[in-house]
Write a protein that binds this DNA or RNA. Structure first.
Lengths: 188, 188
DNA sequence: AAGTAACTAGACAGGTCGGTCTGTCTAGGT
DNA sequence: ACCTAGACAGACCGACCTGTCTAGTTACTT
């Protein structure tokens, strides 16, 4: 039996529209229409718009880490190159047409403080940092947590600047910066 | 003659409400009511809500740099300490009750790509980096642009993480990181 | 071929949105 | 004492919002 096709249609459409136009600016009527689905089908698959927002963020989170896993697998044997895979993935998103900054940060900016989606965002960013830590630990650094934190900040900062369009070649500088940082075994 | 008082009331109220609840989530009716002002007074002072949004962002930009100037002035004579004033100001915002991340990034996340407010945000972040560059150049570094860029990324990344509430003591790490970075005269 | 579960379009309710308009009131300047 | 600019409250507009409901249709399973 096929996966629930309509649900995927809705989720896929939400993924692009929520990102491109923002969550609040995307009404469920238009969303359903764009997905080629009746509004009731949307509400049969998701309890509410808020519920759909959470599903959207979880979907993006899954997609991100799948992509990261692929990039990491592409370079097995080369630990430093594997660590740089995180930068690769961020760069992939920056290069997308209609790039508008980090989907998670943008969502968090729109959601009220008690919205369950914010927790998804929080967990995602924490997971990214954990992944950095693992990859850096594999490099044999003495303080992987600390270095991972630093890489996170650099990359996240560059992602934000890229989203605002402050720079022309946004991630080039940070790639070099992180690459050099990973080479230094002493971290002071 | 007094400054246009009502206009300031509106702008001040917008500054808190737009930040705390988001721009889209703040209706003009409620905004006017909170400011203790008739809706028509709001529209007599601002052409549209979009216009008010731009004024809001410019107001925050002004406020930010005024605060920065004060902090810089507090440490005249000590160039490194002056540079760290940027971190001081960011920390001031992080410590505020109801801190919800960078007002400019949050606004940009909500605004459509062609909204004039986005340009204000872009200019603000570019101005912050320029200020970093000046402060670092005063330290006698050989490549102030490059180091300023790095400090920007670190601080901006930390600001984002702080806004999401990933860490408990969000800016402590980055302060030490930047402080140490500014000590190194060679920047490789 | 029959049954059933999922889908469809569209109306509907109750609210909020940005923005306009009217008519009244009040404070200051002359 | 009069005039005027600006602020007032509140009705009003059309558009859009989330979410519900109904009634008819499609498509798969047995």
């Amino acid at each position: 039996m096929a996966r629930p096709r309509r649900r995927d249609d809705v989720l896929r459409t939400a993924t692009t529209r929520f990102y491109e136009h923002g969550i609040a600016a995307t009404g469920v009527d238009r969303l359903a229409a764009d997905a080629g689905v009746a509004k009731m089908t949307l509400y049969n698959n998701f309890a509410s718009k808020d519920d759909l927002v959470v599903a959207y963020l979880e979907h993006r989170d899954r997609e991100f880490f799948e992509r990261l896993d692929e990039h990491v697998a592409d370079h097995h044997g080369n630990a430093r190159r594997r660590a740089m895979a995180v930068v690769d993935v961020y760069e992939h998103y920056v290069r997308q047409d209609g790039f508008r900054g980090c989907a998670f940060i943008n969502a968090a900016a729109e959601l009220p403080r008690d919205h369950p989606g914010r927790e998804v965002v929080r967990r995602h960013k924490a997971a990214v940092r954990d992944r950095w830590t693992d990859l850096i630990a594999a490099l044999g650094h003495d303080e992987p947590h600390r270095l991972a934190h630093e890489c996170c900040l650099l990359l996240e900062g560059a992602f934000v600047y890229a989203g605002l369009g402050v720079d022309d070649e946004p991630l080039a500088g940070v790639r070099e910066l992180i690459h050099r940082r990973l080479a230094t075994t002493t971290d002071r």
